[in-house]
Computed example of a mutant assay.
Amino acid sequence: MTNNRQQILCVWDFDNSLIDENSDTWIVEKLAPDLRGFMSEFHRAHPGQWTALMQQVFFKLHERGITRADYERSINDIPVSSANLEAIRLLHRAGADVRILSDANTFFIEAFLKHHGLSPLISHVASNPAHFDLTGQLRIDPYTLACPLPCPCQLCPANLCKGQVLSDWLHPVSQCQFDRVFYVGDGAGDLCPALRLSRPVGYVLARAGCSLERLLSKRLALDGLVPHLPQMAATNADPPAKIGAAGPWVGVWRSGEDVFQFFSSQLNG
């Protein structure tokens, strides 16, 4: 709880947001880089079926004798900014409810959190469920929460509408209200949750040079506002752009240091 007892929710995407890689492609590069061609061919033949692709990859890795320990060693080596890890610790100390919302899988995310000592600081992990069966093969199932109506972003995969998950978190049966909601993301799949937020409560932190920044910049231009999102400076307390008349405040970050300094200014300012 912050000094003014605000209720704060901070939601992180995982791949290329909390960490600096795509965890699925990282695992393949580390354990079986020759499968890159298979992944490309499957993705071209079955667009939008990434979770099904990864199940096939896990099957092939199992055939090669890849074990849980092999996965864990590779996950432990995923590049991550120490400043992002410190940002999560800072948020937790401030009493924020910190959650992860990702189209990766629960095993990768939970193994990463355990390795970095962050598991007790994360209240929810919403991702495609994954587990090891009795033979030691890693299996993944789709999250299967789609938007009940056509998604406003028109970009959500069939298995996971992040916007719907965020909406469910923001409007629970308990009617718990958050004073501020932060969303940290990078990709096209993060547009839907970004559009579910509104000022003055909602803040979106978009990674520079990635799809989310480009899509939000396009939305700004359509609304007749600035064509490009401003870069987040470590000295700024608030991102200075907003999407539409009531959309969230948005800023662009380039490094974990940007993210940490932003949260430091928000929580301690």
Rank of each mutant, 00 (worst) to 15 (best):
W12F: 14
V184D: 02
V173P: 15
F107Q: 02
S40Y: 01
A83S: 04
Q231I: 10
L216Q: 03
R207N: 09
R36M: 07
Q137V: 09
V181R: 00
R73H: 12
H46L: 07
C153A: 15
P240R: 04
L121A: 09
R36I: 08
V11Q: 03
C210G: 02
G256C: 01
L118V: 15
I109F: 15
N3G: 01
W50H: 09
V80L: 05
P120G: 04
R99F: 02
E110P: 02
D190P: 02
R199Q: 14
L195K: 00
C192S: 01
S167D: 11
R99Q: 13
I27T: 13
S23H: 06
N22Y: 09
N128R: 07
P230E: 12
Q49F: 13
L267M: 12
P33V: 04
R68I: 13
G117L: 05
L134W: 03
G189I: 05
G37P: 02
Y71L: 10
C153E: 00
I88L: 15
P47Q: 07
A104D: 07
D34K: 05
S264Q: 07
L170G: 06
F178Y: 14
F58H: 11
C192R: 00
L170C: 10
I66W: 02
T144E: 07
V28D: 08
L166N: 09
E257W: 00
S40F: 02
H115F: 15
N76Q: 14
C156V: 00
P142E: 15
R89Y: 10
I27Q: 08
L215D: 08
H92G: 01
C153F: 03
Q231K: 08
P172G: 15
Q137N: 04
E72Y: 08
D20M: 08
S217E: 10
R180W: 02
W26A: 13
G136H: 05
S119Y: 08
V252F: 02
Q261W: 00
I8G: 07
A245F: 12
Q56C: 14
H171M: 03
W169E: 02
V28F: 11
D103W: 01
H171E: 08
